[in-house]
Structures are given as C-alpha cells and as structure tokens.
C-alpha cells in the first residue's frame, strides 16, 4: 500500500477519495489498459437474469510422473514431506485435471464489476506455492504468505503489469495488487529455483481454478455468449463458446490430452522456463 500512500500525499484529500473509489486507478497503478475503469459497488446487470456455467476438465493419456524436487538445501522444507518432496504439474489424482485456470475470455467487454474485498492467499509452505495456480480480479489483493519462516522472495514477472520482487525472510504476509488483466503472471522464488506459480488476472469475477476432480463452476453470469478459456501450465490452452441463459446452467468440458504435453515442451529446463510457458495462453483483454 505504500505506493498508494505516496500518490495520495501528492494529491489533495478531495482527490484522494475519488482515486480510492476508482479502485486504484491513479497514475501509479494503471497498467496497460482498462486500469482507470471505475469499479462500481453493484453488479452491472440485473442479477435476477443471471445464469451459470458448470463443467469439468479431463485429461486423456498418460500423465508425466510428478517431478521430484531436490530440497537438500532446505532440510526444514524437505521434512514436511513424508516421501520425496515432489510437485505434480499435471495432477490427475482426483479423476479430472486439477490446477487449470478457467475464465471468461470474451463476452464481458465494457462491463465493470465490484472488486472483492477479500485477498486471494498464495501460501509458501514446504517450499512450494499453494495453490500453484490462482485467479484474481484486477485491483483485488493477493496475499503472499510465508508459512515456512525461512527466506523466500516473490519475483513476479508480468508484462502488462509492473513486476515486483519482494523479500520474505520470516513468517509474514505481503499484499500486492495488479492493475491490468493478464493471463498468466508467473511468480518465482529465486532462492528455491523449483518454486514456480501462476496468477491469472481478469477484469471480472468469472474465473476459477479446477479442483482435483477437474470440476469447476462459474456462477451468476449475465446472459450472453461467452468464450471460455482453460489454461494449463504444461498443456497450453483450450477454448469453448458457451451461451448462458437466465436461470439455466450451461455445461462445458475441456479435454486435455498427453499429445498437448509433448507439443508444449517438457517441463522446466530451468527455473524460469515457466515464464515462457505462461505466455501460451496469451494476454487476456
């Protein structure tokens, strides 16, 4: 919040309220586009007309085995695992494909939605980001939590937003916001090269991350036709066009296959390869 305070000191107190009301749309926080849109307190449509989307993400074929992480340099983290520390980027353990960021890519242009007051928490625990993939709305807080109590740094390298690199040597939270929509923003801990995560930033609340079963819900959408995109860190993106009608629940299924894995390349040759991976889905506008 220090950035905002500095801006506010410059501006007159009357302007202050206006800027806060604009969801951080002041000069300091504006991103590539749309950053100055006013965020209303109410939904921009009649909620009584809303419909829902429900669906699932599946995976066909043989998933790659979990990556075993060499945590010899951080014994405290390694001790939190029963077996070898590992990370499953293609996680099909729950029946469907988990950790898929699903969001409305097209169909909501020109609409402004209230920003949730609650922060999305990304915990650093056992020297991994939990969750690996998270979604957040423009202007909404992301709380990076250090539950490990040893040195992490959160190095975010967005392109449409401004980057940051924050040190967390102790148990603590650091809150940050993103001013422009961007799918996806890679985050990285440089101290622990294996620690990678992604944050999807969109202008609306219609985004989610698939759970272990692969299931997801996008509820309370205004009626209309939408392009829904599913983004996965190793498998790339899929999209579907869905029509939402009042009071109805549209169903949609995304089928990822192991063929997409080979075309998307093998995971992590280096700690920052996920940055290029993140570009697979492009930047949402």
């Amino acid at each position: 919040m220090a950035r905002y305070e500095r801006v506010l000191r410059v501006l007159a107190p009357a302007v202050l309220l206006a800027v806060v009301g604009c969801g951080g749309g002041g000069g300091d926080a504006a991103g590539g586009g749309g950053g100055g849109d006013a965020a209303p307190a109410e939904m921009p449509f009649d909620v009584a007309t809303a419909g829902n989307i429900t669906g699932s993400v599946t995976f066909e074929g043989t998933p790659p085995p979990p990556e075993v992480l060499d945590m010899t340099s951080e014994a405290d983290c390694a001790a939190t695992y029963t077996g070898d520390p590992e990370v499953s980027w293609v996680d099909v353990g729950g029946g469907g494909l988990a950790d898929v960021f699903v969001y409305v890519r097209e169909g909501l242009e020109g609409m402004s939605f209230p920003v949730p007051g609650q922060a999305v928490v990304i915990d650093q625990q056992g020297c991994q980001y939990r969750p690996l993939v998270a979604g957040v709305q423009v202007g909404q807080s992301v709380a990076f939590r250090n539950s490990d109590g040893l040195l992490h740094n959160i190095n975010a390298s967005p392109t449409a937003n401004r980057p940051f690199n924050v040190s967390q040597p102790v148990n603590m939270d650091t809150e940050r916001e993103f001013a422009a929509p961007e799918v996806m923003i890679p985050i990285q801990c440089d101290v622990h090269g294996w620690m990678a995560g992604y944050i999807g930033v969109v202008t609306h609340p219609y985004h989610t991350v698939s759970g272990g079963s692969g299931a997801f819900d996008l509820s309370q959408l205004p009626p209309g036709e939408y392009v829904i995109e599913a983004w996965h860190a190793r498998l790339g993106t899929l999209e579907q066009t869905v029509t939402v009608t009042t009071g109805q629940t549209a169903e949609v299924t995304f089928n990822f296959t192991d063929a997409m894995l080979s075309s998307a390349g093998t995971p992590t040759d280096g700690p920052h390869d996920h940055r290029t991976m993140a570009r697979v889905g492009g930047v949402a506008e």
Binding site: A2, N153, V166
Partner: peptide, 16 residues
Amino acid sequence: GLDGTPMPNFSDLIDA
C-alpha cells in the same frame, strides 16, 4: 531491489 534480477527489495519489510 534490482528489478529483473533475483535480488528482492527490502523497503516492503521496513514498511511492514
């Protein structure tokens, strides 16, 4: 901090 490198900043820690 040295943005673009692994070196993080410490202003956040002072502020907090």
